[in-house]
Amino acid sequence: MIPILSFSEIIELILKVLIFPGLAFPLLFAMIVIWFERKFLARIMLRIGPLHVGPLNRTGLFQPIADFLKLIQKEIIVPDNAYKILYNAAPIIASIVASMSVAFIPYAPKPDGGYWMIYYTPWSLLVILAIFTARPFIMVGAGWASNSKYCTLGAIRAALQLLAYEVPIALSLVSIVIMSRTFDLAKIVEAQSSIWFIILQPIGFIVILIAMMAELSRRPFDIPLAEQEVVFGWPTEYTGTQFALVMVSEYFDLCAVTSLITVLFLGGWSGPAIPILNDVSPILSGVFWFLLKMAILTVIIIMGRGIYPRLRIDQLLDAGWTLLIPLAIIQIIITLFTAQWWIPLLGGV
């Protein structure tokens, strides 16, 4: 059955899909984060970073766009013995899958009672978890299809890494669900309207932050992409546009992950209303707080690349199973015992 939409609903849907949480937002996020990462890491290393391209006098703001333009002009090289269908499809699937999860994340409440999100479902947490799990399969497929030794090694490492982070993520989500008694992300945010879950569950936050950094293959957990060991891991053979898609899909993932952590632990859009934005629309105020929290998380995740060396795969598995999983279980036990006191204090449930 096709729901019949009114004109304003159609306009709203188009806005959602094309501009805010939809197509333009992850692209803009990727562009700004790539620029910020380069510039910020350069400052930590006492360098200057991108300098020439773009406005605002030698800030290099448009450097990612210039890089992208350069990459799309390049020839696409397919290795001779590659499994061509999978090889060519993998970057496209990777970027689609990575950008899919923003559709299920509520970014702000609407004044009429709904939420500013593309597709509302009461099981959105489970859907996003499922989408995250799909990513390593694309890596393994692409690595195998490239028919290159380094790609295969990187793909196997990606599959191994899945074992390390997937279980802690699931376990630390359990305590969130116990606390809020729902799988609906919007309801989880509303439950935090009086007190954020980061205060109630600091251990869970640390576990999920570390596990998500492993999921994103950010340093110190960029083992599948380890440049010094396996050249560039599973996307070694990609060139031109395909490489650009692979790179962009990583930042789409970063966007989705920071959004998710913001929703789960940092209270989503909650924050004092900002008068100027509130006058235009109450949605903007919520979005502002949401983006601010995302930005702080992004900085923390990016900092990992500047200050930590990469771990070895056995060390990561070791840390995952002997440190993160026990911590997550401890968090569950604490939550179970203290939930009876906390739950009445939470709003919206």
Binding site: L41, M45, L46, R219, Q228, G306, I307, Y308, P309
Partner: peptide
């Protein structure tokens, strides 16, 4: 050495 372990910050500081 720090490059081999993937820590690029300590690549730049001693070089500086």
């Amino acid at each position: 050495f720090s490059v081999a372990t993937g820590l690029e910050t300590m690549l730049m500081w001693p070089i500086n």
